[in-house]
Design a protein around this nucleic acid. Structure first.
Lengths: 132, 132
DNA sequence: AAATGGGTTTTCCAATATGGGAAGGTCAAT
DNA sequence: ATTGACCTTCCCATATTGGAAAACCCATTT
């Protein structure tokens, strides 16, 4: 199976497949006589794993770790769980940050009449506010 | 005032000041005979504006728009408000995405006993789950 | 066999914003 | 004059994805 077929079978673009290979996330694909990459069901399985982990927001580095654990028959589930929970915590931190931004912006927008007049508290605030 | 002083006075690193200049966010700084960039209070004001907008998660492009509105004495506050609210909406969308990820991860982790045994629903799920 | 169209190959460039570091010029103080 | 702190430009790196160009391969159709 060529890269294009592997791409549509897994939902990972051909571009990304090459990129993951270059990053060492997947082994170097075997090549045909004409240098085309060739994929097996095992490869597809791995690609789907990567895709799902990406959907959950794991970074390339984290996915590499997860893949290593996945392939380690003797791994401790605690290791996987710790990785997953650490990631969830990081996501929560990011959410809190974004929520703070939204709150600030909403507050500013509330006080902006939003009509044709040029007076605008949003810009006034950005230009001289002391606290974030 | 040199770039280092401008940096500490505004909280924008010298590196970023040069970057913003290159991106056209701030005008090209006047230079001394020895080619050092030179900043005035007006420049600092603009840099602080940029810094605060960045704290609120606005992109370079959005900040460029905000700066244009800031400098347009006849702008309509509705334009500013629309830009701010669109950004807040985008942030909310991102938050929702991240929350979905956290929920999924937490759910997976809950079912992982997290001890020394290798059995782990997290990896099992990543390797064959159908829905995100 | 030759041509044609579509898939693949590699490589380079783009975007997000920020930091690190090298190599070399400048300034102020000793 | 030397030293140390600061400035300059340029390249690299982060993480991820897309785009484009130029060349090559394959299968199908003249």
């Amino acid at each position: 199976m060529n890269i294009g077929q592997a791409a549509s079978a897994t939902g990972v673009s051909a571009k990304m497949i090459r990129w993951y290979e270059q990053q060492g996330l997947i082994p170097q694909a075997t090549r045909s006589d004409s240098n085309y990459r060739h994929y097996t069901e095992t490869d597809l399985h791995r690609l789907r794993f990567i895709r799902r982990a990406r959907d959950l927001g794991f970074s390339i580095k984290q996915i590499a770790d997860l893949l290593a654990l996945w392939n380690d028959r003797g791994r401790a589930s605690a290791d996987v769980k710790a990785l997953a929970l650490a990631h969830a915590a990081a996501l929560r931190g990011r959410i809190t940050e974004l929520e703070g931004m939204v709150t600030s912006i909403d507050h500013l927008a509330e006080n902006c009449h939003g009509d044709a007049r040029p007076d605008c508290p949003i810009l006034d605030d950005l230009s001289q506010r002391k606290t974030a």
